[in-house]
């Protein structure tokens, strides 16, 4: 089946982002497709790179997952702008962890129309 996943919570405030990550791994292992992982609300903070290493860092796991399965990780531009993760002057993805890109709700709607299942993690 084709899934669209929405991640709504920061990995530092709640377990939900981690649950979403575990769900995506299990879905891929079971032969399903992930059309889009859309980061919304505080979920855009999953693309932040912590300034120090050592703690368990979900953004590194996200990067590895995106690379291994060629997944599309899209941050909503206005949610990212509100949280200082995207500039207002141009498409500047440099402050994001690798594997993430800036996009919009239009891409989310588009993917929803093509998907069999839509799941959100963290309200």
């Amino acid at each position: 089946m084709k899934f669209v996943i929405q991640i709504n919570a920061s990995p530092r405030e709640a377990q939900a982002a981690n649950t979403g990550y575990q769900f995506i791994k299990a879905a891929l292992a079971n032969g399903h497709d992930i059309l889009l992982v859309f980061f919304y609300y505080d979920g855009v903070c999953n693309a932040q790179v912590p300034a120090f290493a050592g703690e368990d860092d979900l953004s590194a796991h996200w990067c590895a997952l995106a690379r291994a399965h060629a997944l599309d990780f899209v941050l909503c531009v206005s949610a990212a702008q509100r949280r200082g993760l995207a500039s207002c002057e141009g498409a500047d993805d440099r402050r994001l962890a690798p594997g993430f890109r800036i996009g919009g709700l239009g891409q989310w709607v588009d993917a929803c129309l093509k998907a069999d299942r839509i799941l959100a993690f963290g309200v």
């Binding site: 919304y40 609300y41 909503c76 206005s78 949610a79 509100r82 919009g104 709700l105 239009g106 989310w108 709607v109 929803c112 129309l113 309200v123």
Partner: peptide
């Protein structure tokens, strides 16, 4: 969730309207 829940309110409306903008 009630109003005045931070940016969430505007963001939920953006998502609803994004779907509406596609004439769905």
């Amino acid at each position: 969730q009630p109003p005045y829940s931070g940016a969430r309110n505007a963001e939920m409306l953006d998502q609803i309207l994004a779907a509406a903008a596609f004439d769905l």
